[in-house]
Design a protein around this nucleic acid. Structure first.
Lengths: 191, 191
DNA sequence: CCTACCGATCGGTAGG
DNA sequence: CCTACCGATCGGTAGG
């Protein structure tokens, strides 16, 4: 929906809390009450925005990577689409879910629940991709997959933070180098 | 100042934007105008809060670590004080600066400037500590210090995010394990 | 989907 | 430091 797409962009820039029904409706050329009636409450609107961000992330990052064979090459593709933003970046203001998770980590409710669910889905995808790399013989059987997935998320998030905060794109290269070094060391021990 | 200490706690829980002069003044038992006059503007109040958070972080995390010899043991002490929160956690709602940086990364102004300055100071401290580890022969001379410092920040931030979002303390152990593995591998190559 | 409105709260000011 | 107030905006509702 166009309403939600504009809201996802705005939230990736200024956070979910920067959104107000009044401003969003003006931006869309409709009345406050008109927009409000679509969703019933501010919380329901935010949940819908979070789900729209998930769909966009899936279409722009996960779906293209699924075209590659499972395992490390798919993982590389995810990195390039997510962090480097091969085409255009998925979210204009940096990783939507990194920002949303930080914003709502201490705010229980339906919005936080939706964020937790989607982050869990994403962690599962990373974990499965790493398991496929083990099955394919690209990583050793005793690879600590939970640890690698944790590092992967940490490094990519931090790269996003660094580029947004200071405009310094070096974080992307640092994250890429760090992940490569770790995976190369594991790959070497397969032989 | 007691005013700022209460505000730092509140901001670490709900973010800097969750603060309003009205609520803060009520919490302190004074009038809105009274609090406002102390700082002159909302922005100046936020900058003062950011600086107070820096002072607290210095006193609770950096200062205690300075009691240890420079190098890896000092770095370990910083980790334990910052992430594991040996005594009480430095900030009740998770790392103040991780949250503040995320919140203001796309909002130019004096608040963002103060955050960037303090994060830079913190990165310098980490970098110097790693350089001291090289001098002490704990790490090889060709250690990529910028990379290690980047990883260190990424992993500790992500541990904080994970525990705040889901209550799952496993992130702390994952971050510790990841950092140890990396430093152990480097240490081994010194011999 | 709209106009018109509600009480609450925002950052900030006047004047003391 | 205070009381009292400003215009703007908030999420939400009434009624159509």
């Amino acid at each position: 929906m166009a309403i939600l797409d504009a809201a996802v962009d705005a939230a990736s820039e200024g956070g979910l809390e920067s959104l107000t029904i009044g401003r969003l409706s003006r931006q869309l050329g409709m009345s406050k009450a008109g927009l409000f009636t679509h969703f019933g409450s501010k919380e329901a609107l935010l949940v819908a925005i979070v789900r729209a961000a998930r769909d966009r992330f899936y279409a722009r990052v996960i779906e293209p990577a699924l075209a590659l064979p499972p395992g490390l090459s798919r993982l590389d593709a995810v990195f390039e689409h997510k962090v480097a933003g091969i085409h255009e970046p998925c979210f204009p203001g940096g990783c939507f879910f990194g920002k949303a998770a930080t914003e709502f980590e201490n705010r229980p409710g339906l919005v936080k629940d939706a964020i937790i669910e989607i982050v869990g889905e994403w962690v599962s995808f990373l974990t499965e991709t790493l398991e496929q790399a083990v099955v394919a013989g690209e990583l050793p059987a005793d690879t600590d997959i939970e640890l690698i997935a944790f590092e992967w998320r940490a490094l990519t998030q931090h790269a996003s933070r660094m580029i947004q905060l200071t405009g310094d794109p070096r974080g992307i290269e640092l994250a890429r180098r760090s992940i490569r070094a770790r995976l190369d060391a594991l790959r070497a021990s397969v032989d």
